[in-house]
Amino acid sequence: MERILVTGANGQLGSELATLSSNYPQYEWIFADRTKITLDDLDTLQSQLEDIKPNIIFNCGAYTAVDKAENERELAFTVNHVAVELIAKYTFKNNAKLIHISTDYVFDGSSSIALNEDEETNPINIYGASKRAGEIACLKENPNSIVIRTSWVYSKFGNNFVKTMQRLMQEKDSINVVNDQIGSPTYAADLAHGMISVLESSSWIPGIYNYSNEGEISWYEFALSIKEIGGYNCNVGGIPSASYPTPAKRPEFSLLDKKKIKTIYNLDIPNYKESLKKMFI
């Protein structure tokens, strides 16, 4: 029986994979939180991998505190780059499959059309730079890896934009949300399904793929959809990013083109609103 190791097991994507895992009893699933897989201690990580001996790794673990990363560069790069390099080396040496999760933040946001996998990367914050370094290391150390870039992830699990909006819209009469950052959300349950579909496919084509839900929206429009589906009475206003400064810059435009993963793996990707409704059920 093949053994799947899921890092970042308590995160949004790891939790959605755990929910799905019972539908795939042909695999032995190992869900590793920080106690089982230590991405910031490389000696420990090496011995943990050798103990677990996975045939497949879904690397969902990451340093994702975008603003904190500006002051914690070393930690961000250890987890998002050097640990990924080690995992890739392990999988290559042991002929194990690796699906590594990356981000739209590898782009600078200067595009105005959906970004495909071959577009030039140019991260504008430490988090994005650390994730891009991880992509490069992953494919260098294990050219058989699959890297999936995703964006604006949310889920019933963990902390995310949708849950924050749900809370604020019930607590406040009015809120403001930035209206000049464009992309598309990703329902983590959809991405989890997509990852398993890739694994279960008869073909394994290494390289970088994009995955997010369909649709092109701003965070403000996303908030309006949350208000509509949730039936909240809160007034939602749109503001420019300049009115809401953050330590880390965000890409203004990071809409991902999903043609490659849809074509190669025959994935049917839902519209963002369709998936958002599922979270409310």
Rank of each mutant, 00 (worst) to 15 (best):
V178D: 08
N122R: 11
N235I: 15
H100S: 15
K260M: 08
V178C: 11
S145M: 06
I52D: 07
M165G: 06
N271C: 03
A69F: 07
I182A: 04
L139R: 07
N233S: 15
V153Q: 14
I87C: 01
I148G: 13
L98R: 12
R132T: 02
K258C: 15
G238S: 07
S241G: 12
A62E: 13
L75N: 02
L45I: 08
I217F: 04
G11P: 04
V79R: 01
E252Y: 10
L98C: 08
G61C: 08
N142R: 01
T44Y: 01
N176R: 13
P123T: 04
E228C: 00
Y211G: 03
S112C: 02
I269S: 05
I281V: 09
T103H: 09
T44K: 14
L255H: 06
F157V: 02
S102E: 08
Q46M: 05
Y27E: 07
F31Y: 05
I87E: 01
R3D: 02
S21G: 08
N59M: 03
F157K: 13
E117S: 05
L168R: 14
N160A: 07
G194L: 05
P25Y: 08
S203W: 01
G237S: 14
L86P: 00
N233F: 05
F92C: 12
Q170H: 13
N142K: 01
Y244F: 13
S22I: 07
Y244R: 10
I148H: 11
G183S: 14
F222S: 01
I217D: 03
K36D: 03
I148N: 11
Y265N: 12
E70W: 11
Q166N: 10
P270Q: 11
K278G: 00
V153P: 03
A223T: 11
N159A: 11
T38A: 15
A9G: 06
A18D: 06
N266F: 00
L115S: 03
D51H: 12
A83K: 02
A248I: 10
A65I: 00
A65P: 00
K258W: 00
D190T: 10
S254W: 01
S130F: 08
P54N: 11
F92G: 10
Y244M: 13
A137V: 01
R132D: 07
I261R: 06
Y27N: 00
E216F: 00
A9P: 12
K262V: 07
Q12I: 09
I56G: 07
A65H: 12
L255R: 03
P251G: 09
R34I: 03
E228H: 09
L39S: 06
E28G: 04
S218E: 10
P185L: 08
Q12L: 14
A88L: 03
T64L: 10
N159M: 06
P251R: 05
D190S: 13
Y209V: 10
G14E: 11
C234L: 07
S47R: 14
M165Q: 04
T38L: 06
S184T: 09
K140H: 14
K278L: 12
D67R: 01
K249F: 09
A223E: 08
T19V: 13
A188V: 07
D180V: 09
L98H: 05
R132V: 02
